[in-house]
Computed example of a mutant assay.
Amino acid sequence: MRWSGQQLGVETSGALPGLAKLNNLVRSVQTPEFAGVTFHEILAKSALNHVPGPSAMPFGWTINPYRGCSHACAYCFARPTHTYLDLDAGDDFDRQIIVKVNVADVLRRELARPSWRHEPVALGTNTDPYQRAEGRYALMPGIIDALAASGTPLSVLTKGTLLRRDLPLLSDAASQVPIDLAMSIAVYDPALQQAVEPGTPSTRARLATVTAVREAGFDCTVFLMPILPYLTDSRAHLDEALRQVKASGATSVLYGALHLKPGVKPWFMQWLERDHPELVPQYRSMYYGTNTYAPKAYRQWLAAKIRPLIRAHGLRYGAEDPATGGVRSSATAASGSVRTARAAASGTPASARPIRPSPRWDESLSPPDALF
């Protein structure tokens, strides 16, 4: 059944009891265009999310027009957020998508409050605002327009090529407020990319989007994150990745090793056991127990390998701090965001608590070359 044939206010068989309890469920929609995915349309009560302080993030506010994400990345750190709605962090996160259909209207009201201080707002910090459903719901144009009209700076991080649709709107908005754009492109092996993030556009399509962003007059950072141990951390893979990033016109690159939050680790390990069972012992050693980050020695090993490559390709960079696992920026790159040609602001380095290295990781040992 297509969207046009499903009535408002009618709870379909795809609706979930946990959502109905919220008293803001409009309808649940299933369509052949998105086989196996159910969209739960809700009337949001708020649009702006305040980042709890003190925070290491270089922004204080976020907007998430969607909850859950059809990109289905096995490593996605946002998976546990679905459990707040009595949904699981695995298959439900990929297939039960919450859509805040009135988010732009709510945002305009919030931005009009006298108390609003026009602080930077980030999109794409949780689930992707340009996932496939955005092609149908088109929530982002209203959000961009509301932020720009109110004089509120914004940033967008995405894996979605739908960003190209809104480049003319973003270009107009950039005459009113600073806008930062970044593209997340972690894997440069086509087969591996489709296996570990099956709902995303191809690496080639995302690199083409970076080029389009640059042609529209914006700077663009590529997030080379996460780097997957034993899969995408070989010199050959990293060198080819950075070559393609540079060729796309990207102005800077951020990198970081895989980290597996509670709730994400079981789902990722399930994927690993299915697709790369030979690597399960290594990952269990590196991410043992409740360990979230790759061992410190591994991060230092990775930094020593990738930093010279980044410099060799003439890219500015922000890097994962080998001492903490957090992202820190170089003197010429923002932390967690990218400069536009129209407005520059100083970045704020992020940090994370130190993680003791796995006793079984030997920094003198290099992981085998990835299958590239």
Rank of each mutant, 00 (worst) to 15 (best):
140 M>V: 04
242 L>C: 15
12 T>I: 12
31 T>F: 04
169 L>M: 06
51 V>A: 10
121 V>Y: 07
1 M>P: 14
281 P>H: 03
315 L>E: 00
181 L>M: 05
143 I>H: 09
82 H>L: 15
41 E>L: 08
11 E>F: 11
6 Q>Y: 08
152 T>I: 04
182 A>E: 05
81 T>E: 09
265 K>P: 12
60 G>F: 09
310 I>K: 04
367 P>D: 00
209 T>A: 12
55 S>W: 09
54 P>L: 08
269 M>A: 06
284 R>S: 14
71 H>V: 06
127 T>P: 09
218 F>L: 01
272 L>F: 07
366 S>P: 05
346 S>D: 14
58 P>D: 15
145 D>M: 06
251 T>K: 07
322 P>Q: 06
274 R>G: 07
309 L>H: 06
226 P>K: 02
236 A>F: 13
182 A>K: 04
179 I>W: 01
276 H>N: 08
192 L>T: 03
135 G>E: 10
279 L>Y: 11
337 S>C: 08
2 R>F: 12
216 A>T: 03
359 P>S: 00
327 V>G: 06
87 L>K: 01
279 L>F: 11
52 P>W: 08
363 E>T: 09
370 A>F: 12
63 I>R: 02
138 A>P: 03
141 P>G: 03
79 R>A: 01
4 S>G: 10
371 L>D: 12
367 P>W: 02
303 A>H: 14
55 S>A: 14
182 A>Y: 07
60 G>C: 13
164 R>D: 11
284 R>P: 12
78 A>H: 14
213 V>H: 09
313 H>P: 11
203 T>A: 15
357 P>A: 02
172 D>Y: 02
41 E>R: 02
203 T>R: 13
309 L>I: 06
271 W>H: 07
71 H>T: 01
26 V>T: 03
280 V>Y: 09
67 R>N: 00
32 P>E: 13
35 A>G: 01
369 D>S: 00
35 A>T: 04
83 T>N: 02
68 G>L: 06
277 P>N: 09
204 R>M: 12
103 V>W: 10
212 A>S: 12
248 S>W: 08
286 M>T: 02
52 P>N: 08
292 T>S: 09
316 R>Q: 10
100 K>M: 07
10 V>Q: 14
24 N>P: 00
5 G>T: 05
148 A>V: 14
106 V>G: 07
57 M>H: 11
33 E>F: 10
302 L>A: 12
163 L>A: 03
307 R>W: 08
172 D>V: 05
54 P>Y: 09
1 M>V: 13
142 G>H: 13
127 T>Q: 05
259 H>Q: 07
90 G>A: 13
341 A>S: 15
185 I>F: 14
55 S>L: 10
337 S>M: 11
215 E>W: 13
353 R>V: 01
208 A>S: 15
188 Y>D: 12
154 L>D: 01
106 V>C: 04
344 A>L: 05
334 A>K: 03
202 S>E: 05
183 M>D: 03
